[in-house]
Amino acid sequence: MSADEPQPDASGPYLLRLFVAGTSARSLRTVETLHGLCGTHLRDRYALEVVDIYQQPDLAQRDGVLAAPTLLRIAPPPARRITGDLSDEERVLRGLGLTASPGGADGR
């Protein structure tokens, strides 16, 4: 399962910010899913910041976040945002620009 390589300009480090609402089951699940995804697809080429919007509502305002959970890809540009608990892995990867290699058939 380690054959996956990110396709597009994957050279730079990924800067991700995840907004969650408190420590609800959904928040925890989302954080867990994201860690899993990143560990799989980005290995150590990423920095993840998890923001609890209850704690830092000003950050949610600054980044224009409405829904929770919301994942922001800050780098590499352009900025992207992904809403939801990240349970649809294919869409998450597409949103992050980490589409699986065509021949891999490895979306699990």
């Binding site: 907004f19 609402a21 408190g22 959904r26 919007i53 209850y54 509502p57 000003d58 949610a60 305002q61 224009g64 976040v65 409405l66 829904a67 929770a68 959970p69 919301t70 900025a79 992207r80 945002r81 992904i82 809403t83 939801g84 608990d85 990240l86 349970s87 649809d88 869409r91 998450v92 597409r94 949103g95």
Partner: peptide
């Protein structure tokens, strides 16, 4: 004043979510 920018092209839905952030932002303001 809180300007909430909503642009469809930017948002990818990947499962369940809610608008808690909107509530919190409003509550915060």
């Amino acid at each position: 004043i809180d300007h909430v920018r909503v642009e469809r092209s930017e948002i990818e839905e990947t499962g369940e979510y809610d608008l808690e952030a909107l509530f919190i932002r409003l509550g915060f303001a």
